[in-house]
Amino acid sequence: MDYLIVAFFAFFGGNARYLLGLSLPAVSGFPLGTLVANLLGCFLFSWLVKHIMADQNLNGRLILGVGTGFFGAFTTFSSFALDTIKLFETNILLAFLYLVLSVFGGILMAYLGEKVWRPKPHKEDLA
């Protein structure tokens, strides 16, 4: 049953990524759509799945579907790798920029997603 849930949500994540790629085409060979999808996906996965959904004790299958299905299809390592190789063949400076922005930007976005949502303690917890 879990694989059907992942597949269902992956349909929407993959389509969202595709539409984002159409609206943010490559500029001088720089894969802006893939970069934005991966950075946004890192932030939202960390923020939404790890904090909002888990803290609200939502159904584990919903978390699996959104986390693995939607964000797994929305972000893409294979496109990142292929885009990096293509850039190295045409523009080594853009390739390094893309590589640094993708790797360190993704880690930063996941970190920010962790920091944005911190539940405030209740007054009775402070006593």
Rank of each mutant, 00 (worst) to 15 (best):
M1N: 08
L4C: 07
I5G: 00
V6T: 10
F9I: 07
A10W: 04
F11S: 07
F11M: 11
G13D: 10
G14V: 09
N15E: 10
N15F: 09
N15K: 05
N15C: 04
A16H: 03
A16I: 04
R17P: 08
R17Q: 09
G21T: 07
G21I: 02
L22R: 12
L22D: 12
L22F: 02
S23W: 08
L24W: 08
P25S: 09
P25H: 07
S28A: 12
G29I: 00
G29C: 07
F30R: 09
L32S: 03
L32T: 14
G33D: 02
G33M: 07
G33E: 08
G33Q: 07
T34C: 01
V36E: 02
V36T: 13
V36Y: 02
G41V: 10
C42A: 12
F43N: 08
F43Q: 08
F45T: 15
W47T: 04
L48T: 10
V49I: 13
K50Y: 09
K50H: 14
H51L: 08
H51V: 01
I52R: 07
M53E: 11
A54S: 15
A54R: 15
A54M: 14
D55C: 00
Q56G: 06
Q56Y: 11
N57T: 06
N59M: 05
N59A: 14
G60I: 02
G60V: 01
G60Y: 00
G60D: 14
R61H: 11
L62P: 06
L62K: 03
L64A: 08
L64Y: 08
G65R: 01
V66Y: 04
G67Y: 04
G69W: 02
F70Y: 08
F70N: 00
F71A: 00
F71N: 06
G72W: 03
G72P: 11
A73W: 00
A73L: 05
F74S: 11
T75R: 06
T75I: 05
T75G: 02
T76I: 08
T76D: 03
F77G: 14
S79A: 15
L82A: 13
L82M: 13
T84V: 02
T84M: 01
T84N: 11
I85G: 00
L87I: 12
L87Y: 05
F88V: 01
F88Y: 06
T90A: 12
T90R: 12
T90D: 04
N91H: 10
N91I: 00
I92W: 14
L93T: 11
L94N: 10
F96Y: 13
Y98Q: 02
Y98M: 02
L99Q: 01
V100L: 15
L101E: 06
V103E: 05
G105I: 06
G106F: 07
G106L: 03
G106N: 06
I107K: 05
I107H: 08
L108P: 00
Y111V: 13
L112V: 11
L112H: 09
G113V: 03
G113M: 03
K115L: 15
R118W: 00
R118E: 14
R118Q: 14
P121I: 10
H122L: 13
E124F: 14
L126H: 04
L126M: 15
A127W: 14
A127N: 13
